[in-house]
């Protein structure tokens, strides 16, 4: 699993800023697997909850998803 620190902007490593973090992650030109690993890392650091719908949205934004 990848730590999001130093990749996801530090201010967004905060459960109260989940929506902004998700928007940021969706916009990044990264692969599906890489984004999902960052999302898991964010969840561990923040104890924030991620719904299956949010996870699916991030997954669908991967540059390798057609």
């Amino acid at each position: 699993m990848i730590s999001p620190t130093g990749i996801i902007p530090d201010a967004l490593i905060d459960p109260a800023r989940k929506a902004e973090m998700l928007d940021w992650l969706v916009q990044q030109p990264m692969t599906r697997a890489y984004k999902l690993q960052l999302l898991s890392g964010w969840r561990i650091w923040t104890r924030g909850a991620i719904t299956s719908r949010e996870s699916a949205r991030v997954a669908a934004s991967g540059v390798d998803v057609r």
């Binding site: 620190t5 130093g6 530090d10 561990i44 923040t46 104890r47």
Partner: peptide, 21 residues
């Protein structure tokens, strides 16, 4: 309850590649 990011803020910035444990 504090988050791990809050509890380990200084260490998280010193060791950015690591998870809490």
């Amino acid at each position: 309850m504090s988050t791990p990011a809050q509890l380990l803020q200084a260490d998280r910035r010193r060791f950015p590649g690591l998870l809490p444990r």
